[in-house]
Design a protein around this nucleic acid. Structure first.
Lengths: 349, 349
DNA sequence: CTGTTAGCGCATTCAA
DNA sequence: TTGAATGCGCTAACAG
């Protein structure tokens, strides 16, 4: 039934050389081998359709050529994009990507880490809530641990993210500068996650810089009532002056948009719409949506490069934490265009 | 630097038993072991924070506890959803999911399969274009190969998909029954992929059943001109009678919607809108979108179960191909509601 | 109830 | 330029 797997022994026998020579061939150490032998081996391998057993190689070399990517939720575009870029950069180099989802649950995260520990994973890239930092600290002793998206101080790990504070500040600046009198910032409950709090802070600081009263609206994803009530509050204010609605991420935007739509949209003149994140359904919004494009593919590529480098040089636990910031891009679009007709821009800063 | 890994030997020594006993413990064969010993081992493992080396286990048992999921593109909701459901079902059972993206490129697919061959993958779940069937056939000799989403006859593999023909037929029926005189079917170039051709055929057969002229519009994703021209053609016809636009998948819908929107929407009275697939941005469309919901999570769960079963029983290459169809669900919604005011439904069949 | 031992497939000394 | 021998960490006979 099950076809017997071809091993290095079979190849050696067939090629009339020792397994050592085959091993050398596999590891591209051709310098210690006659052209003849090399060619013969090549042939035999082809004939037998031989594929070295990665498990055995790994057992020997104490590596698995596998990299774990642990994300909160696969349905978040951020996560998918990250995985894609990592996978695209690492697969050609012979590494496989294992994906794990935590749903933001510390227990699931812990469980995943535990399993992975036995898998001889070569590296961990993780979007964490920060509930298993000591565990991660331990892991980073033996393999690279890279924290993405969220800021945490792990003494010996690399942390890759965008400057959420600055990007959010720029976005808010843009909205005020464009002429919106008030910006309603819609976010989920602020918590310890840096991403969330920094975006909020960026908004707050911009507001204070422009001497405007901040309007922070807390919503709960999946709770239509909370979304609707934000819209109600906007309605109360909108009569007087143009208002902008700025959501802390695309998921919130996605949920609140249907409500906004039924009320004062499309009309950037009265209500500007903007969001953090560049959603993949952005084309569906018309007029086109102003947003913050996070450099996720770049982040993935950067991480992949770092890892490949470390694999080549041999990993050593870094002495100190390293923080890598990749800037986001503000995409100004129609959904926040306030055409005042007089050609001026009322930057009231 | 790198902390020495704890091995089964260390545990054995510390617990004053042989490695065999530890091994038994690890494999939950407690029946051959005193309570005392068991407890001691438990303790030591805890103390030493020991994690069995999965590579070594795999090398021995000729399995890796890893399952490869090969999809066309991670940015397709179908793929993400499939991976999620597989991962959710398999992770708790101690299996890891390796994801691979092919972009529909036969070469990339071949390359991925080749690498995987060495990884001692325990199973392959693949959404293929059918360019490497002989390779897959070979692989299925030793591990389960499950084809998803698309129909191919691999003599010894399981094929899981939805009935695209029937679902598309039902959708089209619905549109005609609702009173739309013409249905414009928008698809990419029909090709060998069953998914695509069957959806088209379902549309065609429904049209002929309703004695309507089919209007098949071929577009190219990423080509706005092709999208726009479909809309132009619809405009030419729309004056007389209500027309429905039905896209072969959500990606096409996503691209054509902005064009439609600028012309005759929202007005299901004149132009009905429907799509195969239930996109995750569906809430953004208003009035709510009529669509075909594919049972992707169910497919994933079914596949996961099958695999777990086969792992338990020991895999044997099946004698014949097995086709598993999981029905889709037609979601009738506002975007194709033709209110004729007289309370009747003009089912002109 | 417990231990000894022989590989799993490969990479790597050390010799030749 | 090549090979024999050892062991990576674990499991599974086979003994006791």
């Amino acid at each position: 039934m099950t076809a017997k797997r071809i091993t290095i022994q079979d190849v050696a026998r067939e090629a009339n050389v020792s397994v050592t020579t085959i091993s050398r061939f596999l590891n591209a150490r051709y310098e210690a081998m006659s052209q003849e032998t090399k060619k013969r081996i090549e042939q035999v391998i082809e004939e037998l359709d031989y594929h070295p057993n990665a498990l055995a190689q790994g057992l020997k070399g104490n590596r698995s050529r596998m990299i774990a990517v642990i994300v909160v939720k696969l349905s978040y575009p951020f996560c998918v994009s990250l995985i894609r870029s990592l996978s695209n950069a690492l697969t050609p180099e012979g590494y496989n990507v294992i994906v794990c989802e935590t749903e933001g649950d510390p227990k699931r995260e812990a469980h995943v880490l535990k399993t992975l520990l036995g898998q001889q994973i070569d590296a961990i890239v993780i979007q964490t809530n920060g509930d298993n930092l000591t565990e991660l600290e331990t892991i980073s002793k033996s393999v690279p641990v890279i924290l993405v998206d969220r800021k945490f101080k792990l003494p010996h790990a690399t942390n890759v993210l965008t400057d959420n504070y600055e990007a959010s500040m720029k976005m808010t600046n843009h909205l005020y500068a464009e002429g919106y009198q008030n910006v309603f910032y819609v976010t989920e409950t602020p918590n310890a996650i840096s991403t969330r709090s920094e975006r909020l802070q960026g908004y707050l600081d911009s507001s204070s810089r422009y001497h405007r009263t901040p309007h922070v609206e807390i919503v709960k994803r999946g709770d239509d009532v909370s979304m609707q009530s934000v819209v109600e509050r906007i309605k109360e204010n909108i009569s007087k002056r143009p208002i902008a609605l700025y959501t802390a991420n695309a998921l919130i935007f996605h949920e609140i948009y249907p409500h906004v739509q039924q009320i004062d949209w499309p009309s950037p003149e009265k209500l500007g719409l903007a969001t953090f994140d560049e959603p993949d359904w952005i084309k569906l919004i018309s007029p086109s949506l102003t947003c913050v494009r996070q450099p996720v593919p770049e982040m993935g590529a950067w991480v992949a490069n770092l890892l490949l480098q470390q694999f080549k040089d041999g990993y050593e636990q870094p002495d100190e934490a390293h923080l890598k910031i990749i800037p986001s891009e503000l995409i100004k679009s129609e959904s926040t265009r306030l055409d005042r007709g007089d050609g001026t821009v009322s930057d009231t800063l």
